[in-house]
Design a protein around this nucleic acid. Sequence first.
DNA 1: GCTTGACTAGACTAACTAGTCAACTATTCG
DNA 2: CGAATAGTTGACTAGTTAGTCTAGTCAAGC
Lengths: 196, 196
Amino acid sequence: MDAALDLIWEESYGSVTIDDICKRAEVKKGSFYYFFSSKSELAVAALERMWLQSWKPSMDQRFSPSIDPLTRLTAYLESIYDKQVAIKQEHGKVLGCPIVSMGTETCTNEESVNGKIRELLNRKRRYYESAIRDAVAEGLIEPCDPAEKAVAFAGLIEGIVCQCRIMNDPEVAKHLPEMGLRILGAKQTASVPDKA
Amino acid sequence: MDAALDLIWEESYGSVTIDDICKRAEVKKGSFYYFFSSKSELAVAALERMWLQSWKPSMDQRFSPSIDPLTRLTAYLESIYDKQVAIKQEHGKVLGCPIVSMGTETCTNEESVNGKIRELLNRKRRYYESAIRDAVAEGLIEPCDPAEKAVAFAGLIEGIVCQCRIMNDPEVAKHLPEMGLRILGAKQTASVPDKA
DNA sequence: GCTTGACTAGACTAACTAGTCAACTATTCG
DNA sequence: CGAATAGTTGACTAGTTAGTCTAGTCAAGC
């Protein structure tokens, strides 16, 4: 599963073959088909596994209610830039977000994969929404519909991360925290710690 | 070229074969190779053609300096929602933006296509930047670096349009104009005409 | 030592893929 | 007209692909 996700992330869903995956995982095709019946089935399993093992724990920590709601959001935005920088270091290229990349590619012809992708995007969005709701309650941002605002917030992140991938440049995400606060309608706009 | 762009847009770059393109275009493969030497070469030519024939005229009109700068931007944002609704009507599915979809998919293994994609994204960005600069000059939005703001603006659009595609729902882009004004830092936030 | 069930290996097929080529047709222009 | 140029065709190769199948390995329990 790790081999599959890595390959798909580094290239694309369509350009990765089952043979490629087997080669990277050092496994023969017979074994592959013992566990999975197709690439899409593997992809769905791998995505769920990634969520449970990596994403969820990380999100739980970053969006802990013990943290000030606006800080949850801005710290998360900062972490996105850091992450893309780290990916470029490790993989030699900026790879963006595997979910969005796979999502845009597979949504028109891989129903099962797309279902899982939507699920994961919705799970992430719920973290944003909760933090936004808390921030509104504490009067840190202007009153709004948290669900609607979370969509906008997620959209901004995904769009910027997408651009990072296409341009192969993490610097596109450098000012994500300020942009995010703008979208949110934060009352004190200068609250981003000067980390540059 | 139209056949290729349509197919790639409806599915994805990787899943469309040269045979598919020939079939849709009602042309035999020999003819294909008479004009192009590969799928990527066709893609580059098709993208440039699309820009010149459709996108550029449309952008020139929407971003005419004769229009109030903030109106240029908000009307454009509204048009994006309308466009996705129209696409769903015509194709049965929300297809998002072909440039972003192709871009995220091809950027790691199709250098020539990626080059053209970056070029087109930069051309679009220049329209935003110019309108933002005018808006700042006229005191319609808060002072800022227009280039930087244009990146954020483009990011929001691309992210939201991406979500529309993945979710197969144009409604995600419904509130794009308000979100855009937030990002821009417009001074009178209630300036979006009540078009709903 | 025997059996069972989980897993692996790798050869195999049938379909599909990119790309080639020589023969064919249409168009243009002197 | 006649010939050259431009474009078309479909059959061809050679390589790749997903997916199947049979023979086999291995460890646990009896």
